[in-house]
């Protein structure tokens, strides 16, 4: 590990100022991913600005009935919060499907959104990787890529975004509150992560120096049911092969509202707009759910060894939606 300086600012303003004046600096949240990457030599900040103890650790009720989750709220606390468990169970389920108890105790809401891909090549500095070293190449296309993307990838990068939480947030139409040298802005979670295109080194639309301060949830739809399901190699402590976050509202046997997002398929939590479009007004039947999944997944471009993800995503979609529909009967 290379030597680095450590700073623990007391306020958001101080943190943003420090980041702006030190180009080689990085924000540190729970450290569950960044510290690993520093040990691996993937990341080498000269200054760590510890934002994990900024006063952003509250979950606030919003006047519109939504929630505002501070960026330093720990994943464990968020998953256990009664407001989340009762009104946004899909988010609680997604959080609890991720990592391990110890990691969830450390990981923050803001940091979770910024965790980097677990592509094995990205984590190995002795091999090329366009995300880590732009222009060096992508061994994953021909190499070990069973866990990598089938949607949204480019010739330059086939990595997936690993967060479970982000998938639920995408389905919930959450928004990320950001502050930076140029002021505050709000970015929908679905637009927060970038597709790699020719610049896989940039995971998100955050500008240098910007800091996540909160995640905002719109009020829950009172009649919609939600569920998160994750398929994985072992029963705990494994990243998603494919996961689905779904919200469904059925009236008189017909889909009135549907929100669907996938994890494990793409470089970002994949909000399934085409599937939602197909679901709107469709009968709440397994056939219709399957057609909706197909509408989304027909765009998939699997690699040699990860075509199974398309079928797995389809099956998960039908199963989760059917389960949610059954709750409306």
């Amino acid at each position: 590990m290379k030597p680095f300086a450590y700073l623990r600012p007391a306020t958001v303003e101080e943190a943003v100022r420090a980041r702006a004046t030190h180009p080689g600096s990085a924000f540190l949240g729970g450290g569950t991913n960044l510290v690993d990457l520093m040990k691996l030599g993937v990341s080498g900040p000269e200054l760590l600005i510890d934002v994990g103890r900024l006063p952003l650790d509250r979950i606030e009720e919003l006047p519109d009935g939504g929630l505002r989750i501070g960026a330093t709220v720990r994943n464990s606390d968020l998953a256990a919060a009664p407001a989340v468990r009762e009104r946004y169970p899909v988010l609680s389920q997604a959080l609890l499907a991720g990592a391990s108890g110890q990691l969830r105790n450390a990981a923050t809401t803001g940091g979770n959104l910024l965790q980097r891909t677990r592509c094995l090549y990205f984590q190995d500095v002795s091999v090329p990787c366009n995300k880590r070293r732009p222009g060096s190449g992508c061994p994953a296309v021909e190499g070990v890529h069973r866990d990598l993307a089938v949607l949204g990838h480019s010739a330059h990068c086939v990595a997936t975004q690993p967060s479970d939480m982000a998938v639920a947030l995408a389905a919930l139409d959450a928004a990320v509150e950001v502050t930076g040298p140029d002021g505050d802005r709000t970015v929908p979670v679905t637009a927060f992560h970038r597709l790699p295109g020719e610049h896989p080194e940039r995971d998100t639309v955050l500008e240098p120096g910007e800091l996540i301060t909160a995640v905002r949830l719109p009020p829950p739809r009172p009649l919609a049911h939600g569920h998160y399901r994750k398929a994985r190699d072992r029963a705990s402590y494994a990243f998603a092969l494919v996961s689905v976050a779904a919200l469904l509202e059925v009236r008189d046997g017909v889909v009135h509202h549907a929100a669907l997002a996938y994890g494990g398929l793409a470089p970002r939590p994949w909000r399934a707009a085409a599937a939602e479009e197909a679901l709107r007004g469709a009968p709440a039947t397994a056939d219709a759910f399957g057609r909706a999944a197909d509408a989304e997944l027909s765009a998939a471009r699997p690699l040699r060894d990860n075509g199974f993800k398309v079928e797995l995503a389809r099956r998960l979609t039908v199963s989760v939606l059917a389960r949610l529909a059954a709750r409306h009967r």
Binding site: L120, R234, S236
Partner: peptide, 13 residues
């Protein structure tokens, strides 16, 4: 080459 990607069974398995 790490215990995140080499999947030993965990208690839940």
């Amino acid at each position: 080459r790490d215990l995140a990607s080499y999947h030993l069974p965990v208690c839940a398995d």
